[in-house]
């Protein structure tokens, strides 16, 4: 059993949730999202994010607009759609339950 593998699996599961969560605090472009996720060590490389953002966009959770940048090319600013917000609320509930249940279970065994 590879610990790195398991860790990656776990991270992956919450990654979508975290992206939506980041965006719920305000519109952001890819690098913003990445720096936030990097801080909490959810992703290692940026490349991971692009396919994910793309899929979320295609599923109607996100939309984006182009914004000029002072330096470099124009940036894609992502925004949560109303559908995305509903989805995020669902995920919040699921996450809460999950964390509680796992904690509860761990406590039971620890006792």
């Amino acid at each position: 059993m590879n610990i790195e593998n398991t860790k990656a699996q776990m991270r992956k599961g919450v990654l979508e949730y975290c992206i939506l969560s980041v965006l719920s605090n305000g519109d952001a472009y890819a690098s913003d999202i990445i720096s936030k996720l990097k801080k909490v060590q959810l992703i290692v490389v940026e490349g991971t994010l692009y396919p994910l953002l793309n899929r979320l966009k295609n599923d109607g959770m996100l939309s984006y607009r182009w914004e000029e940048s002072l330096q470099g090319p124009p940036r894609k600013y992502y925004k949560l759609t109303s559908e995305g917000e509903k989805f995020l609320n669902e995920l919040h509930k699921v996450w809460k339950e999950l964390v509680e249940n796992v904690a509860q279970m761990n406590n039971q065994f620890n006792k």
Binding site: N5, L15, I43, G47, T48
Partner: peptide
């Protein structure tokens, strides 16, 4: 490339990629 990652590293985000 270090920042963005190699194609293999992208896989973490794909469905059931591992």
């Amino acid at each position: 490339i270090g920042i963005i990652g190699l194609p293999e590293d992208f896989d973490i985000a794909d469905d059931g990629s591992k």
